[in-house]
Design a protein around this nucleic acid. Structure first.
Ligand code: ZN
Ligand code: ZN
Ligand code: ZN
Ligand code: ZN
Lengths: 146, 146
DNA sequence: GTTAGTTATGAGGATGATTCTCAACAATCT
DNA sequence: AGATTGTTGAGAATCATCCTCATAACTAAC
């Protein structure tokens, strides 16, 4: 967990007048160390010293600050990962069976073409576009063997 | 609400040994008449004769049958719309402020390029891809005036 | 068209993820 | 240090969603 990650997180929090406390630093560390989006029970497993209510509150704060992103799913729990601004722009593979999520990126040319097409379509509908979300929905390798 | 829509819905239900009852027909009618994805409170507003518990149960049945699709959101309620198989493949514009959702389609060339790129990327990750979801996240026209 | 068997309904209750409350605690400033 | 303001966490509250079960509707023989 590199220091500049924590520095950047602290900066973003300061921008919305929030402190970078121990609990929040721990959350960023857990998410950075995981490599894939985690549900809150998974976060608590990885650091049992954290209090459930604080984890909910702090992930919401970190989301507002733009440090983490919440991924909503059909399954029971939402999942969290570090915001794209701390990594590269990416998308998700979602398993309909077990709910697991992993990351992928598109070839630059496809991403580019997609982005300009989306920009145009949003403007035409009166929307001010901010970002986009793209998920491939399917069955993960593990769930195919059953 | 064209008859062939109801016929197709009935057929899909029959395939999973479910009946196309009055309540289910009413749900399909409401969703077909709306033109945009609706939350369950919105469905109940539009047809107050429906029972809340039956709406939840029947939308789940219709989802299993492939007649409706559930759209999960950051906001309080999920939303439902008729499945793509009853209309054309499309995507969503999502307002981060009020949660409203509207539909759009991509130019065929972009959609095509995207689809083949996704297929390739999913296979490489061991996934059996089923479909994809693409949302533009931003601010709707109404919410920009405030 | 009656009967027996199966499936759907709906009102109210249960579940459970998330959010709220509030008293104790920690950081920041003068 | 004292005063002010932000944070924590254990438990309670909320509320979208799902479940229960007695009743009603449908279906398929007889
Ligand atoms: Zn899986
Ligand atoms: Zn993208
Ligand atoms: Zn809006
Ligand atoms: Zn598409």
């Amino acid at each position: 967990m590199p220091d500049d990650l924590h520095d950047a997180a602290a900066l973003r929090l300061r921008r919305i007048s929030q402190r970078y406390t121990g609990g929040r630093r721990a959350l960023v560390g857990v998410l950075a160390g995981s490599g894939r989006p985690l549900s809150i029970p998974e976060v608590l497993e990885r650091d049992p010293s954290l209090a459930e209510s604080s984890v909910y509150r702090n992930l919401a704060v970190l989301e507002q600050a733009g440090v983490v992103a919440r991924i909503v799913t059909n399954h029971d729990h939402n999942r969290y990962e570090l915001s794209e601004r701390f990594g590269e722009h990416h998308h998700h593979l979602v398993c309909t069976n077990c709910g697991e999520i992993s990351d992928f990126t598109l070839p630059a040319a496809v991403e580019q073409a997609l982005d300009t097409a989306l920009e145009r379509v949003a403007r035409r509908a009166g929307y001010r576009p901010d970002t986009h979300r793209l998920d491939v929905v399917g069955t993960c390798a593990t769930c195919q063997h059953e």
